[in-house]
Every structure is written in C-alpha cells, then in structure tokens.
C-alpha cells in the first residue's frame, strides 16, 4: 500500500485543493456577467462623460464625432484682453455654477439635518411600545412609497398660490394675510423644496435609525432604570453613542442622495436661480443647450464632489475592506 505514496511535499505546497479552485472558478463565472454589465452601463459612460468634458462636443457631435480636444478649457480658461484685463471662462468661472453649487450644498445640508432630527424623533416614537405602533409605521411608509415626481405634483398642488390648501390653512389660522406663491418666489422656493423632501425622506431616515435603536439591548435601559439614571442622561450617555455608527451611515447615505437632487426641484419649482442645483444646471447644459463639453465638465465636478463623500462614507462607516463580516 505504501508503494503508491509518492511523498513529494514540494508538489503540494501552496496549491489549492480542487474544492477551493472549483469555487474560485465558479466565483469568476458568477461575477463576470455582472461586471461586464456594470462596465457597460457605469464605467464606460462615466469615462466617456469625463472625456466629453475635455472637448468642445455639441449634441450633434455625438453622432458625427466631430468634436475637438480643448483640454481644461471647459473647466477654466482665460484670455488677456486688449486693455490688459483678464477674461475668465469655463465652469469654474461661471457665477451660475457657483450659485448651483451653493444651492445644492445648502439643500443637502438643511434637508439632511432636518431629516435626521425628525427621523430620530419618529424613530424614538416607534421604538416605544404602544397600541397601534404597526399602524403608525405603516403610515410613515406612505410618503416613502410615493414616487418623487408624484409627491412633487401633490405638494405643488397643495402649495398652489391661489387654490392651495397650505395657503388656506395659514390664512385661516392668521399666520399670513395674503396667499404666498411658495414654489415661484425666490425666498420661499427652497423652503418649499425642503418641505417636500423632508416629508418624503424622513421615513427612510426614521426606519434606518429605528433599526439602529433596536440593536441596542433592552437590558441596558433596564439597568439604567434600576440605577435611577435620568432618561435624558441615558439618551446622551447610552443611546446616542451606540446609535452613532448607524446614524452616521444613514446621514452620509442621505447626503449623497441629496447632492444629486434633480427630479423634485425640476418638477416642483421653475428652476430659477433660487433653487437650481448642480444636476439641473448640468442637465440644462446637456439637453437644452446641447453643450456636451461644459455640461460634462459640470457633471464631472459633481461626480468628484460625490466621490469625496463616498470616501468619507467608507472611512466613517468603517466598511470592512477584507469583505469579511464585521462582527
């Protein structure tokens, strides 16, 4: 029997068993279709968009390919005029662009802050035990389930200057003495957008926070209660620190979403200077003006900003790079 043994330790060193290689092979074929698909719908278009941003492409050039390489001119270029003054051109020298950047950031900042605090409040309510909790949870899922466009239209109707029910309510209570054109006026349009976004997205936030709350062991509250610690103190010393990771991830998720806002503002408001965002400006440049060079430069800048936040998410969310389960 021992004659069949050809003990050669060198041969087996470092080689995978056929189970491992079978699985590795399978993994490759399982991943390949998805990766090919993602390459075609994500990586390649992104690459092309970035390429466009370095050309003077216009809508027609998409079909004819007659665009020229212009380097960073779409981002920033300058020309010294005869009188010696410098004329700046490009997205980075465009006041409209910076206005859109501030609008986007202001919107993201305000909406996420409001949604976090209100989401926390709703989550705390849902975390308490009371009769009808299931119904309340079902009710708050409704705004989340309504398509953004539909909620923009519903609120557009409610915020209508002449016939809107919001103006009617405020008039009845006496907060205002004449109807407000919420979505059209420069000083209220952003408020209207925030209102709708907060209404629609707070449920999502609340559910994520609720999941985080429910991961906190109940006995921690019970022992705090036995020790006679004031609930406020428990909230700041126990609940909030334990909730922080879930909260951070939820916040960054929402920030990323808010930074690319397009549909709500596009439908709810006339997209004036008061509410125009990076996505809308870029869309307008691409679709309405057909300037693929500058439009792509704008969208690339938005991509870079969001990429920055994704990195932040990875860092704060401590996503495990090894792909193993994190505890």
């Amino acid at each position: 029997m021992t004659t069949t043994i050809s003990a050669n330790p060198e041969r087996s060193r470092g080689r995978e068993t056929s189970l491992q290689s079978q699985r590795a092979r399978a993994a490759f074929w399982f991943l390949a279709p998805m990766l090919v698909m993602l390459f075609f719908v994500a990586a390649w278009p992104l690459f092309r968009s970035i390429m466009f941003s370095f050309t003077d492409a216009e809508a027609n050039d998409i079909f004819t390919g007659g665009s020229e390489w212009v380097g960073f001119d779409n981002y920033l270029s300058w020309r010294v005029r005869d009188d010696g003054s410098i004329r700046w051109r490009g997205v980075l020298a465009d006041a409209d662009w910076w206005n859109a950047v501030w609008n986007t950031i202001r919107f993201a900042f305000m909406s996420v802050a409001l949604e976090t605090v209100l989401g926390l409040l709703v989550a705390l309510v849902l975390n308490a035990e009371f009769k009808g909790r299931g119904l309340v949870r079902a009710a708050i899922l409704i705004p989340w389930a309504i398509p953004t466009i539909v909620s923009a239209r519903m609120w557009g109707w409610m915020l209508n200057d002449q016939f809107g029910i919001i103006n009617d309510m405020l008039l009845t209570v006496g907060f205002i003495d004449s109807p407000i054109a919420w979505t059209a006026r420069a000083d209220t349009a952003m408020i209207a957008v925030l209102m709708v976004d907060v209404w629609k997205t707070t449920p999502f936030m609340a559910l994520l926070i609720l999941a985080g709350l429910q991961m906190i062991p109940r006995d921690m509250y019970e022992s705090a209660k036995i020790d006679g610690i004031h609930p406020m103190k428990v909230f700041f010393r126990v609940t909030l620190p334990l909730l922080k990771p879930a909260l951070m991830v939820a916040v960054i998720f929402r920030v990323l979403d808010a930074l690319r806002i397009f549909d709500l503002i596009y439908v709810l408001t006339p997209q004036s200077e008061a509410t125009v965002t990076m996505s809308i400006l870029s869309y307008r440049e691409l679709q309405q003006f057909g300037d693929y060079g500058e439009g792509s430069a704008q969208s690339t800048l938005l991509f870079l900003i969001i990429a920055l936040f994704v990195l932040l998410y990875i860092w704060l969310g401590r996503v495990d790079l090894s792909g193993e389960r994190s505890k």
Binding site: V41, A42, W44, P45, L46, F47, R48, S49, M51, F52, A57, I62, F253, L256, L259, R260, F262, M278, S279, S282, Y283, L286, Y292, G295, S296, S299, T300, L302, F303, I306, V310, Y313
Partner: peptide
C-alpha cells in the same frame, strides 16, 4: 451612489 447626471452624456 453614482450621480446619474455624471454618466448621462456617456450613456
């Protein structure tokens, strides 16, 4: 988490 606008012209 891609902003959809970033791939719009390429798509």
């Amino acid at each position: 988490m891609f902003p959809q606008i970033a791939v719009l012209s390429g798509l």
